[in-house]
Design a protein around this nucleic acid. Structure first.
Lengths: 213, 213
DNA sequence: TCGTTAATTTAACTTTGTTAATTTAACGAC
DNA sequence: GTCGTTAAATTAACAAAGTTAAATTAACGA
């Protein structure tokens, strides 16, 4: 006799519509434009309906970040040619990431913004993040296994990622006024941080070279 | 016959008190705790008094960031031993910066948060930022002049700074769970990015080495 | 003492997050 | 088909915050 609760797919569908609208607001008009009221307006419903689908606004924002991290992991996986040449794989993945961040600065900002509730508030976020990270660790581990570089793969990725992330976050914050593409800026970083791995192909691309004179 | 306007020092003094209170709120309770009403409460005045001293809240936040950038520049200058050895100078400056960021993550977050009004809204901010940056460029230029490395000093600093900034921002966002000190993480980055400059002293400290086997 | 004007406060409005009360709507029982 | 039950959705309402305008206070010189 009771009214039937929402189907799981119905609920998921509405959540999806809310997330899509929220992400568009974020992209188009920035963080402060993402309000439940505007979301509701975009969906043509009342401004409290989102509370049926998200605990509160923080939960919505966490869900957005989660989606971004998953998309990011997909980009990494999708730009990996696979095979037995870790250097080639990393080059391709690097290019893919640069393309993604260049095309989606808002998403990058969302993922790596410094002002966020503690990460452990939303464990799924940590998991998604780690999934992307671990993929890179696996590729680097391949290089280590082949004896092309030495060290702890996780630490290597941490350092390399951090190094590239610096430039990316400056880009995402629109604080880079360089007349270069992202990849032009990050490639030398990658090549220097992972130098030995790219000795054959790329060291010549680095901006910083030992003085020859 | 009119009432005398505020002295410049009186005005500066109140602005200072407002900034101090705001920074403390930011440090202790985060971004969302910085409100004019709480500021006023801290100063024991009405919640609209700050409007006499700052155009709006964005202006206050910009002033905070400005102060942080100036303090940051002071840290750089203050930890520079000077002299004719650019490698030694950079090592010392690097250590100083790491200490500062370790001790003041909130300030770092404030300076480099990805969510901010466009930089050019507050030209003084750009100037302060550039002052700190240019100091580093001068040091690197010294190394270039001595023929120890080659390349455009500004680009070199951009890349090196970006590389280190990646780790620092992860730290500021509390997204580093590594059991290492900041300097332990950033030193190998610096040494690899600026490798030739540190060939004598530091390359051994890098995490990433050419495989020997 | 009083008028003038800057500084400050009080009042008021808007927006937003959030909760509670109310209404709407779908389902099975009769 | 009607009706009770209950989830979903809406409406109403409140608190906190940014901001503006009106009212008040206070210092100065005539």
């Amino acid at each position: 006799m009771p009214r039937a609760p929402l189907t799981e797919t119905e609920e998921a569908r509405t959540r999806e519509r809310l997330c899509d609208a929220a992400l568009e607001l974020y992209r188009e008009h920035g963080q402060e434009a993402v309000t439940f009221r505007r979301l509701a307006e975009a969906l043509g419903t009342s401004h409290t309906r989102p509370y049926r689908y998200f605990e509160d606004k923080d939960a919505l924002m966490a869900e957005l970040r989660l989606r971004c991290f998953r998309a990011f992991a997909d980009v990494i996986r999708g730009s990996d040619p696979g095979g037995h040449d870790p250097a080639a794989r990393l080059r391709s993945i690097h290019a893919g990431i640069m393309r993604y961040v260049h095309d989606h600065p808002a998403e990058y900002r969302l993922m790596f913004s410094l002002r966020q509730p503690p990460l452990d508030t939303y464990p799924a976020l940590l998991t998604a993040r780690r999934t992307a990270f671990d993929y890179l660790v696996d590729v680097v581990q391949q290089a280590v296994d082949q004896g092309r570089i030495t060290g702890d793969a996780r630490t290597i990725v941490h350092v390399a990622w951090g190094a590239v992330h610096g430039v990316l976050s400056l880009h995402a914050a629109d604080q880079l006024v360089h007349g270069r593409t992202l990849a032009q800026l990050t490639t030398p970083i990658l090549y220097t941080v992972l130098g030995p791995l790219f000795d054959d192909a790329g060291a010549g691309g680095a901006h910083i070279r030992r003085a020859t004179g």
